[in-house]
Design a protein around this nucleic acid. Structure first.
Length: 502
RNA sequence: GGUCCUGUCGUCUAGCCUGGCCUAGGACGCUGGAUUUUCAUUCCAGCAACACGGGUUCGAAUCCCGUCAGGACCGCCA
């Protein structure tokens, strides 16, 4: 029996990316788990942009992140672009709010100014680590007199604001990991702001989650040690704390946290390589979750029904591109040909093979027109051969070229001699030239050629040279398909040019 | 170094809570085979794991203890 699912009237979860880079695979996965938890409970999935790092945050990244999430189908119901009851949803637009809380904390002496230099702090960290202690702040500035603080502030000395963490054990219950206990002695007085108008992550997040009425914080395991800090802050400010769930991390094959140095990690680049969102979603959710039975294929809708956060794994999972490729191929094969063609056209355009005209497409190399129906016929031939959409251009380019490059040796099937190949092509040519344009259909071509192939000890002797002559490829779609799409004239021309090589 | 987390086929995992149905199941990949003009698809078969050591028990992947290994975090990033 699956564990009982959480049922709350109003689940509110959020994805809180910082726009300091493209949409990372891991961020998207965290978004997916949040989204599923919200949807299956009739709750809200909220997007909050955490752009307090002014140096690294950009609007372009923000835009890219939002596009990527939408492309994956992770639509939010409140966010910076669409607003909502608890906005604004961009942290830089909430500075006034944080300032109030900061001032209050300062006034209540739950936070203090710290004037220690970064060099001093770094030296301290090194020292503490060397003697085997947690590298926490010494608390040196905690008891500075008000006069001295004022004087330092007036002099414009560099400072930060630290939270005076009460010494206690912080206990919380994680949805995935169960009861967790941390000793605040190991945390120390963390910096919560660089100034009254420059809040830092651990501080801003607590206020936003409270004000935005977030009920569940579902995030990566890398935040596990931030949680006690945040709980302490919540307690100091009298804010309720949400339920936590820390997801296992996605790891690279070298078992470290997946990052740029391992290659492709941005959702955008997977899209550009021709991965389908449903494949990515299916793949992502199985990195840490499974239904408990043997089903492996899940659409977003079925995930909303079946996903159970209590079944998520505790250990990190390695990103296995083979499985993604398999899933992508699976979803490509299950698409309607018309739909698949629609997805493939941009890749054909990008490769410079075709160009959009009014109601049709122009083949760049020949100047001829090709309509949607023909494109669909071509794409369909490769539906079960495609692992990514981007492969479509390389696989089908011979349909769009005036001339194809061909090497003589490729025309030989097994151990055929040049003479045999030439004969084979000649027989194909002669039988095909008998067929009139009107009868040039796949069925007819197939029937005719197959009949003739009976004269050979193996069909390959007739069909292989023909297919290679038409496509220039050792691996391609079948000759009857190619013949019917290429048409009589082009087909015969290609056979003629192939013969010249022999 | 400290804190915390985790350990079932190469990889994702089922099973663990509530010991026997586990000669440990599925999937990807890999190997072989069938279909086939090629590639791919499809189908069939095979290879392959309970980290280690103790204990508890009639019986342990499952419970307990220890060891080892891996990871995350320890920032005036998020």
């Amino acid at each position: 029996m699956p564990s009982e699912k959480i049922k709350l009237d109003k689940i509110r979860v959020r994805l809180a990316p910082s726009p300091t880079g493209y949409l990372h695979f891991g961020t998207a996965r965290v978004g997916l788990f949040n989204y599923l938890l919200a949807k299956q409970n009739n709750g809200s999935f909220i997007l909050r942009i955490e752009d307090t790092d002014k140096e690294r945050s950009t609007k372009e990244f923000e835009k890219g992140i939002m596009e990527g999430l939408k492309w994956l189908g992770l639509e939010w119901s409140e966010g910076p672009d669409i607003g909502g009851e608890y906005g604004p949803y961009r942290q830089t637009e909430r500075l006034k709010i944080y300032r109030e809380y900061l001032e209050k904390l300062l006034k209540e002496k739950k936070a203090y100014y710290c004037f220690c230099s970064e060099e001093e702090l770094e030296a301290q960290r090194q020292y503490r680590m060397s003697i085997g202690e947690a590298p926490i702040y010494s608390g040196k500035c905690a008891d500075m007199s008000e006069e001295e603080v004022k004087k330092n502030l007036a002099e414009g000395k560099d400072c930060v604001i630290r939270f005076k963490a009460p010494v206690k054990k912080v206990v919380f219950n994680d949805l995935i990991r169960g009861r967790l206990e941390f000793d605040s002695k190991m945390i120390g007085d963390t910096v919560i702001a660089k100034g009254l108008d420059s809040p830092l992550y651990n501080f801003a997040v607590v206020i936003d989650d409270h004000l935005m009425k977030i009920s569940h914080v579902v995030r990566g395991e890398d935040h596990l040690s931030n949680t006690p800090k945040q709980i302490l802050l919540q307690e100091a400010m009298g804010l309720n704390h949400p339920v936590y769930a820390h997801l296992p991390l996605v790891m690279a094959p070298d078992k470290t946290k997946l990052s740029k140095r391992h290659g492709t990690v941005s959702i955008e680049s997977y899209r550009d390589d021709g991965y389908l969102p449903e494949a990515l979603i299916n793949f992502m959710v199985f990195l840490g979750w499974n239904p408990g039975d043997e089903r492996e294929i899940f659409s977003m809708d079925s995930l909303v029904k079946e996903f159970d956060i209590k079944r998520v794994q505790k250990g990190g999972a390695i990103f296995n591109i083979e499985k993604l490729n398999y899933l992508n191929g699976f979803y490509i094969r299950s698409k309607k040909p018309e739909k698949l063609t629609e997805f493939c056209i941009p890749f054909l355009e990008k490769a410079g093979l075709i160009e959009k005209k009014k109601d049709t497409y122009a083949v760049k190399d020949t100047g001829e027109d090709v309509d949607l129906e023909e494109l669909t016929a071509i794409v369909s031939l490769y539906q079960e051969r495609l692992k990514h959409l981007s492969e479509i251009a390389n696989l089908t380019d011979f349909f769009f070229k005036k001339d194809i490059s061909l090497e003589k040796d490729k025309l030989k099937w097994k151990q055929m001699a040049d003479e045999d190949v030439k004969n084979s092509l000649e027989r194909s040519e002669s039988v095909l030239s008998e067929i009139k344009d009107a009868n040039w259909t796949k069925e007819n071509l197939e029937k005719t050629l197959l009949k003739m192939s009976e004269e050979y000890s193996s069909r390959g002797e007739l069909l292989w040279p023909l297919r290679v002559a038409l496509s220039g490829r050792e691996a391609s779609a079948g000759p009857f398909d190619i013949l019917s799409i290429l048409g009589r004239e082009k087909s015969l021309n290609r056979i003629k040019s192939a013969k010249k090589l022999l």
